[in-house]
Amino acid sequence: MADVKKIATRDSYGAALAALGAEHEDLIVFDADLAGATKTGTFRKAFPQRHFNCGIAEGNMIAVAAGAASMGLVPFASSFAMFAAGRAFEQVRNSIGYPHLNVKIGATHGGISVGEDGASHQCCEDFALMRSIPGMVVMAPADDVEAKAAVKAAYEHQGPVYLRFGRLAVPVFHDEASFKFEIGKGEVLQDGSDVAIIANGLLVNEAIEAGKALKEAGISARVINLCTIKPLDEELVLKAAKECGKVITCEEHSVIGGLGEAVCALLSEKCPTPVRRIGVNDEFGHSGPAAALLKQFGLSAEHIVEVAKDFCGK
């Protein structure tokens, strides 16, 4: 495993913006004094005339982006997830969501893997907030390849999109040459029939590792990557529930309002199935190295394996 390439999806975001910017003149970028951290600085370096710093004023930035979108431009507005989805929630809801304007929100530093900054910056509520807005597409890509594809898909999609990226470098497991991405479509990474493990963001890699470990322990786990939380790939989730009979959801987000609840809502109405949700259990994070925090909060392959074994009675 030593030679697995690791890239933070925020880096993928910056690189994808710069690549797309070369093809599309109408793509512009807004940032709120975090261009170095959100990596929109990569775009700024290539296209300084299309990058607009808004200063530390996220609410204004979001509504400015809405106005620019109404003129036919395709703005990507960036800040940390906490401020893009949290602080500016109402601007996103009223100035982008309600008029259904073509703004892409590129939110980096999602989840507790923000690490040392602590709870004030560890946003575990953004899926819940963003998915409650009608017409909003919500995505949390798992690795570099998927993140770049998601940015491209977001640009091509007409309407508001929320993209969540991470600070921590994570393994690149997709093969760029063969990878196909579509908004609202999940992918089965390992087939199985005892339990379905549905994950997004950096938990996908943990789910893959868990799937391998479970196989060795005699449990056949179907590992699913659901990058798009909204709209949910209902067909894929229902099929997995029907064929596996048990579902585990994994996300670097509160167990309230995110992927887990989206899956539970679908299953309770269309295919009642026992579900275990792995996520942040209605508590705030705290300072520490990202890897240690992920382990401590149970956002790890080991914990997924434990939950799956218990769930399967093994």
Binding site: A63, G67, S70, M71
Partner: peptide, 26 residues
Amino acid sequence: DMSTGSLGQGISAACGMALAAKHQGK
């Protein structure tokens, strides 16, 4: 030209329009 109602947001949207107009040479 813009959906409004929540106070304080319209002027920001207007700023975005004015910035875009300049950028587009309108």
